Amino acid sequence: MSTATASAALPVAEDDRPSIWERLRIGRIVANLALLLIVAIWTFPTVGLLVSSVRDADQLAISGWWTSLTSSTTPGAGRLASSSDQIEEDGIYVITGDIFESAGNLTLSAVGTTSRDPGAFGVGEAVPMNQGGELVVDETGAYRWTSDTPFEHTNTPRIYYVASEPPVFTLDNYYRVLTSAGVGQSFLNSLTVAIPATVIPILIAAFAAYALAWMRFPGRGILVAVIVGLLVVPLQTSLIPILRLYNGIAVNFDGQAQGYLGVWLAHTAFGLPLAIFLLRNYMVGLPREIMESARMDGATHFQIFTTMVLPLSFPALASFAIFQFLWVWNDLLVALIFLGSQNDQMVLTGRLVNLLGSRGNNWELLTAGAFISMIVPLIVFFSLQRYFVRGLLAGSVKGG
């Protein structure tokens, strides 16, 4: 048998390795699962905040939001009637009443005579009382206290209990936030701060980005490096020097240190590095042929910028506008430093913090206030979301 015939007779081993399409499909599934996990991690606290905002304040104070769909068990105490309310029935002295009084829609599960063991006796069991007789309480809180001898106590004895309450959902938290004094003014103050503090850096950064992308002048590369370096400057470390500089200038000019102008300038200064970086990288990627054709037709840099570059750069402008508006709207530190804590200039974030109270015992209002403050940023984001990813990716990966 020839070598060729022998080789043909041997079985050909099949390649067990997955094909490239199978590997791509597996990689896509893993990527989707990872993305789903990230979305779930980010969504989880938002859902908790939303559920907490519509829960009853008393239930929210004693149980977590994940128990909102189950009945909550709470210990408590009630008062029994005094001996003056007793009546005689067939030689037995009886006192009746309700230990819950106006405590809400509670269901009793156990009672006790001491705070250390409020669930010592079950519903319907006879509870021996120190004042004499036996006490029987049903699940609605109604009690019957009987004794063979007349009651002689003059006080109102305390009885302890363990009760469960069904979940209660309400919009009272939102109503209290919306009707709180100064919330409407603070909402307008936040708009007064956020809109100019978003528009001003976009205008300045657009001109600077065009110059760094398409104009030739000495030191352009150094300026780009400095702008990239400013991206990592912490806001907190530079606030005090900027505030001292601004106070010295403002007092010398108009005698007033705090005001909207200061907070606008501060947000503009902190937002400009990112704005210039994104816009410059985006503009560098625009077609060079369009610019050269415009110059051959005699167009100036200003005409090219206003009629061609700005319309083409709208995705990048929208991406930065979303970032800047969300940052300024949710800011509290810069607003407190440059505006102060006066009621007529307090922003919405500061007002919501004040609703907590001096001891933080009204934090259910903060959950509702958080969603109220999210309305405007959500409107801005969904209005510009179609440009967001395109502008962000272009400004992050393109360079020149």
Rank of each mutant, 00 (worst) to 15 (best):
A213P: 04
V232G: 05
N173D: 09
A211W: 01
L203E: 02
R158K: 15
M291Y: 14
G248R: 11
G229C: 08
A208Q: 12
G285E: 13
E152Y: 10
A269C: 12
E152I: 12
A209E: 06
L261S: 11
V284E: 00
Y282G: 06
I242S: 01
A209N: 06
L265A: 09
P196N: 07
L286C: 00
I276G: 11
A194H: 04
I240T: 09
N252T: 10
T156V: 07
F207T: 08
Y246W: 15
L274K: 04
V193P: 00
Y282S: 07
I227T: 10
L212N: 00
F169C: 07
D172T: 14
I240A: 08
V226I: 14
L274S: 06
F207N: 04
P196Y: 07
E289T: 02
P167C: 14
T237L: 14
G184W: 15
N247P: 00
L171E: 02
L212M: 03
T156N: 15
L272G: 02
V193F: 03
T192H: 01
L178F: 11
R288M: 13
I276C: 12
V228C: 07
D172F: 07
P196A: 01
P241I: 10
L235H: 05
L239R: 10
P287D: 13
P157A: 10
L265R: 03
V224H: 05
Q185P: 00
I227W: 01
P287K: 05
A208C: 10
R280G: 02
G262H: 11
V177G: 00
I200D: 06
E165S: 12
P234N: 08
P167A: 12
S186K: 06
N155H: 09
P234G: 08
L230H: 10
G259D: 08
A206C: 11
T198H: 05
D254N: 15
L274W: 13
A209S: 11
G248M: 07
F217V: 02
V263P: 09
N173V: 07
V177T: 00
T170F: 10
A225L: 05
L239F: 13
R244Q: 15
L245S: 13
R216W: 05
V183G: 04
A275F: 09
V226A: 13
V232Y: 14
S164A: 15
F277M: 10
V232I: 15
T156P: 03
Y175W: 11
P273S: 09
R244M: 15
I276N: 11
T170S: 15
G255E: 03
G259L: 07
A194R: 02
T192Q: 07
A181G: 12
P167M: 13
S186E: 04
I202S: 14
A257W: 09
Y174M: 03
R176E: 14
G221N: 08
